[in-house]
Design a protein around this nucleic acid. Structure first.
Length: 371
RNA sequence: GGUGGGGUGACCGAGUGGCUAAUGGUAGCAGACUGUAAAUCUGCCGGGCUAACGCCCUACGUAGGUUCGAAUCCUACCCCCACCA
């Protein structure tokens, strides 16, 4: 039910096949984020057409609305969303970081003040696992304590050690389940090498795992630091399970991550930028609202095969943003998601045929700007 | 023809002697966004010079006037709206 087959390695880069209850995921792969059970603005059919093989949902958000009991009663997250391919739910650990000011962290768990209605909600490692079990995604994530990229050593250590203690609790609660779902641990440790290595060691001690995630990156730290942490961890990561770099990233980040041994990525930037009118192109990002696109009959990205690029001229997409029609948000989101999914597909081909590294370097060089 | 009201920057619209290159809003332009509190947020928005502080020019219908100083007061004219002839 949970299997990962490594098809080829090229330096640290890998190509593999991850089999989950709802299907197989060819890696490397980008996973669109569907926090509320929807990849914002896109229908399940839209997402399927981007070639996405697996999408995310979020424990915290779905617990608040509509409630995991409602989702479960409707047949689980797959039936609820009509997305019948693999799914992964994030544990709510990231909200410990992003909802700073609305939450209080204690050893037992985290008390959130709902950003929706202000009600108090408690998330513990056990609760996070129970909620995810009710949601019923293929993969559940361990409940972790994420700290900012600039976090001082003591805070990073506290978050890392707590994440390990919580991991033990997640593992135990998960062991009481029926085995229909797997759980992946998350390596923390901020930007500190010794903490990262201790986190990895402690995580592996509590294994074995069917996958392993690296969290707490792209949360404000400089890019070279993220690369250094990935390079530090890579040799110690088990070869036989997929590695998931959480919350990353921009197009170039995918390639840099793949080069450093990462198999799976997720990021809200594709859809958020899409809604905000920024499109990713091979040469860098483009402001779709920009006056330069007025009247343009060119496709958004002539090299892209997505619905948006094969159908609509730039001048029309700009118009949609100018008149604030929701179609514009959807079309650029579709393109950005397809852009990342396709980047994963291309990277996979290049790993399989042995030309990944040169291709990646040329790609990143061409893709100017820090997008 | 008479009476009353009104003409402010691309548009709408404040302002009724100095703190006003002129509140707000819209439109326009640029930027940000990385396990989604985000269809959001930020900046610019008369012209010229400057890396910047800043300096100069033009500007509140038109032309004069009063005043140390006017978008704001006075005079004439032009135009718009309403009502009455």
């Amino acid at each position: 039910m949970f299997d990962f087959t490594l098809e080829r390695t090229l330096g640290s880069a890998r190509a593999g096949s991850l089999t989950l209850p709802h299907g197989t995921v060819r890696t490397p792969a980008f996973m669109p984020v569907g926090t509320h059970g929807v990849v914002r603005g896109l229908s399940a059919a839209d997402v399927r057409r981007t070639g996405a093989q697996i999408i995310l949902g979020n424990t915290y958000h779905l617990h608040i609305r509509p409630g995991e009991d409602v989702v479960q009663a409707m047949g689980g997250l797959h039936r609820f969303t009509t997305w019948d391919r693999p799914m992964l739910t994030d544990s709510g650990g990231f909200q410990v970081f992003s909802l700073e000011g609305l939450r209080r962290i204690e050893e037992d768990g985290v008390t959130f003040q709902s950003h929706v209605d202000g009600t108090t909600r408690m998330l513990t490692p056990e609760r996070a696992m129970e909620i995810q079990r009710a949601l019923g995604a293929d993969v559940a994530m361990a409940f972790d304590h994420v700290v900012p990229g600039q976090a001082p050593y003591d805070l990073a250590r506290e978050g890392m050690e707590r994440t390990l203690r919580w991991l033990e609790r997640c593992r135990r609660r998960h062991a009481q389940g029926d085995g229909a779902q797997t759980v992946w641990p998350i390596v923390q440790g901020g930007t500190y090498d010794d903490l990262r290595l201790r986190s990895l060691e402690g995580t592996l001690e509590r294994g074995p795992w069917t996958g392993i995630a690296i969290g707490g990156l792209s949360v404000g730290e400089p890019k070279p630091v993220m690369h250094r942490v990935l390079e530090l961890l890579e040799p110690g990561l088990p070869r036989e399970v997929p590695r998931y770099l959480m919350g990353v990233g921009f197009p170039a980040d995918l390639l840099e991550g793949i080069a450093r041994g990462v198999d799976l990525f997720d990021c809200v930037a594709a859809t958020r930028n899409g809604r905000h009118g920024t499109a990713w192109l091979p040469g860098g990002r483009l402001n779709v609202r920009g006056a330069a696109l007025k009247g343009s009959t060119e496709p958004l990205d002539p090299e892209c095969d997505c619905e948006t690029c094969t159908t609509y001229p730039r001048g029309y997409l700009r118009h949609l943003f100018v008149v604030e029609d929701i179609l514009g948000l959807r079309l650029v989101s579709i393109h950005n998601v397809r852009f990342l999914v396709r980047l994963g597909e291309q990277a996979r081909e290049r790993v399989l045929d042995g030309t990944f590294d040169g291709w990646r370097q040329a790609w990143v060089r061409r893709h100017r700007g820090n997008s």
